[in-house]
Amino acid sequence: MRRGTADAALERPQLQLALAVSAVLACGLLAATAVSTAAASAGVATENAASVARGSIDSSVLSTDGSALGIAANNLAALALLAAGAPVLGSLTLVGIALIGIGVGVSAASVVAALGAAETIARIAPYIVFEAAAVLLAAIAGLLPTAHAVTAWLRTGRQPGRAYADGLGYGLRLTAAAALLVVLGALIESICVARGA
């Protein structure tokens, strides 16, 4: 077996483990932050929905750019924050996960309070899968180099610096896939916004 093939065979299990660790950490932190924030803001969201319905609050100030370009720009900025953690031991990714989780939690509580759960799901279903997958891929990309360095070092004694560099390369591929998903999700969301769905 050639040296390059042997290295690839040794690296594959460590990379798979690092991907799994990164995915569990990213999903767990994002879900925990979003759910706890939604629960904490549910009362305020309900009061705000009632105020908007009575005309006491001008909801037009809450509207954002519903064009595909505007949606993609906002979502790509979030992905950039998540993926930017890759070269700094995942620290920015952890901050990004917390911020996005808080935003998702508050937004979800507000929209569900205003529209109800069934209507909310019906409105976001066409595009939320793409956007959620993109966020998770970018978060995994931001955590992957550190997870890969640690798992490779613990399991095989491999130099963490080399494994970290390899993780950066894989993270860049995940980030590119996440960006494509964001663009697709933004196109679908802009169509839904234009239709008033």
Rank of each mutant, 00 (worst) to 15 (best):
G4S: 14
G4H: 12
T5M: 08
D7R: 14
L10N: 10
E11G: 05
Q14G: 15
L17A: 13
A20P: 04
V21T: 07
V21Q: 11
A23S: 13
V24Y: 09
V24M: 08
L29P: 04
L29T: 10
L30C: 07
A31N: 03
A34H: 03
T37G: 06
T37L: 03
T37Q: 04
A38R: 11
G43F: 01
A45F: 00
T46G: 12
T46P: 00
T46C: 00
N48Q: 15
R54E: 15
S60D: 12
V61C: 01
D65R: 02
S67H: 09
L76Q: 09
L82C: 11
A84L: 15
G85R: 02
L89W: 12
L92C: 11
V95C: 08
G96Q: 09
G96R: 03
I100L: 15
I102F: 14
V104K: 01
V104N: 13
G105R: 10
G105V: 09
G105A: 11
V106I: 14
A108M: 12
S110R: 07
A113T: 04
A113S: 14
E119L: 05
A122V: 04
A122S: 11
I124K: 00
I124V: 15
P126F: 02
Y127F: 13
F130A: 06
F130I: 02
A133T: 05
A133G: 01
L137R: 01
I140G: 06
A141Q: 08
A141P: 12
G142H: 06
L143I: 06
L144D: 08
A147P: 04
H148E: 11
V150W: 13
V150S: 06
T151C: 12
G161D: 06
G161H: 02
R162L: 14
A163K: 07
A163W: 08
Y164P: 06
D166M: 04
D166Q: 14
G167D: 09
G169A: 12
L172C: 10
L181Q: 00
I188H: 01
S190T: 02
R195G: 08
G196E: 05
G196Q: 09
